[in-house]
Simulated assay, not measured.
Amino acid sequence: MKSPFRPIAKQLLAAALGLCLTALPLAAFDTRAEAAFVLDQGTNTVLLSKNAEIPLPPASMSKLMTLYVAFEALRDGRLTLDEQLPVSAHAMSYGGSTMFLDTTDRVRVEDLLRGIIVLSGNDACVVIAEALSPDGTEAGFARYMTKRAQELGMNNASFANSNGWPAAGHRMSMRDLGILAQHLIEDFPQYYPLFSEENFAFDGRAPSNTRNRNPLLGLGIGADGLKTGHTSEAGYGLVGSAVQGDRRVIFVISGLDSTKARAEEAEAVVNWSFRQFAKKIIAKAGIPVARAEVWQGAEQSVGLVPQTDLEILLPALAGKEIAAEVVYSGPINAPISKGDPLAELVLQPDDLPELRLPLVAAEDIAAGGFFVRIKTAAQVLSKRLINGPEATE
């Protein structure tokens, strides 16, 4: 006998939660950046989004995509850190920030990576690009970068070169850059320490270009990456990350009018992100937050519990209740096994995105026996008599 409830029906049990979460309404950070994106990595909570979906010139911040592809090649064995790569005339032709490479050089991959990260070397990017390009050209590598970025969820990314040199169609959104930073941190922890290096003197060639341009490194605020960028079209920007305690924040800012403004804004974003938000455990693993109705089971309901402690990011100051409810499709057909995913705890904190957290069965519920089925049949028949045949559909 099928359930008398539609499978898509939602049971809302806000009153049964017994949760009292509090937070003050939070004023959005008033950034001077033309576009910005701030993410709390551990909870995957977006703290700030300003023009974050708009494709913009990323300048040298797009070098992070070249680095990601290079790290993939190292992981897959297509490159090694000690391998020496030749420098083409095309690579040597780039101006701007460079390692001052020439066509007589063969450069270790590890030095090229440091040259990109610390020195922002346009020429170093091209050497890597030509080595990994499907057709041996920088343009071919840029096409591959675009394809790979799309696969990683960077929906607004489109590359015309490997280093962010101004070019038509070379674009990324701030969210794209945030996604890329998160992938670099999570996918390649063995290489991520390179981003916190403050100096790299390659072969004594460029004494005026040995310092990392990231203005937050060395300030004692937990900053450990990732990449600055600047062109006249893009303004001054930074893809940054910082760790304080057990939290990591990833942020992207762009369109600032000076290195001073970039440094001030980046530090302000970091301080705001850590001071105005805090992680809170709202439900403990294995402790029921609600019960769901069961159809034709040995029990009439099943407990709904989180499998792990549910920890979310909330505004740090207290003062106002946050709406919370449990949502599930039901009643739920027996038998049910402990740990089966059954429901979601839905929260809507002020000034933060809606949160949907999974809940599972707290215990096994066996299918009901003969008398349970007879009782259920009687209930369905009663509903038909009262409400008509449509009550069972």
Score class of each variant (00 low, 15 high):
358 P>Q: 08
290 A>W: 02
250 I>W: 00
354 E>T: 15
2 K>T: 09
156 N>R: 14
114 R>P: 01
246 D>C: 08
167 A>W: 08
188 F>K: 08
211 R>V: 13
189 P>A: 07
219 L>D: 11
321 E>M: 05
332 I>M: 07
232 S>T: 12
135 D>F: 08
19 L>I: 11
304 L>A: 11
235 G>R: 00
238 L>I: 04
81 L>P: 01
23 A>F: 03
75 R>H: 15
56 L>C: 07
98 T>E: 02
68 Y>A: 06
113 L>P: 03
16 A>I: 00
354 E>Q: 15
371 F>M: 14
46 V>Q: 13
231 T>M: 11
127 V>D: 03
271 N>S: 09
17 L>Y: 08
58 P>T: 04
215 P>D: 02
377 A>Q: 13
304 L>W: 02
281 I>H: 03
99 M>T: 02
247 R>N: 05
113 L>T: 02
86 P>C: 01
119 L>S: 11
342 L>K: 12
150 Q>A: 14
209 N>E: 05
117 I>Q: 00
126 V>C: 10
122 N>R: 01
158 S>Q: 14
86 P>K: 07
196 S>E: 15
387 N>D: 14
240 G>T: 03
378 A>C: 15
248 R>D: 09
375 K>C: 02
389 P>E: 12
244 Q>D: 09
286 G>S: 08
331 P>N: 07
377 A>L: 15
240 G>I: 10
105 D>P: 06
174 M>N: 11
268 A>I: 06
122 N>I: 04
77 G>K: 09
209 N>F: 02
307 Q>G: 12
283 A>R: 01
260 K>P: 00
290 A>E: 02
190 Q>V: 10
393 E>T: 14
97 S>L: 09
37 F>S: 00
190 Q>S: 15
283 A>L: 05
157 A>H: 02
366 A>F: 00
351 D>H: 13
321 E>A: 13
391 A>V: 11
21 L>V: 12
187 D>G: 08
382 S>H: 08
220 G>Q: 04
387 N>I: 03
227 K>N: 13
265 E>T: 07
34 E>C: 10
97 S>R: 03
281 I>C: 15
201 A>F: 13
365 I>N: 01
321 E>H: 07
202 F>M: 06
256 L>Y: 04
63 K>V: 12
213 R>L: 10
270 V>Q: 04
220 G>P: 00
275 R>K: 14
325 E>M: 10
255 G>F: 01
134 P>D: 11
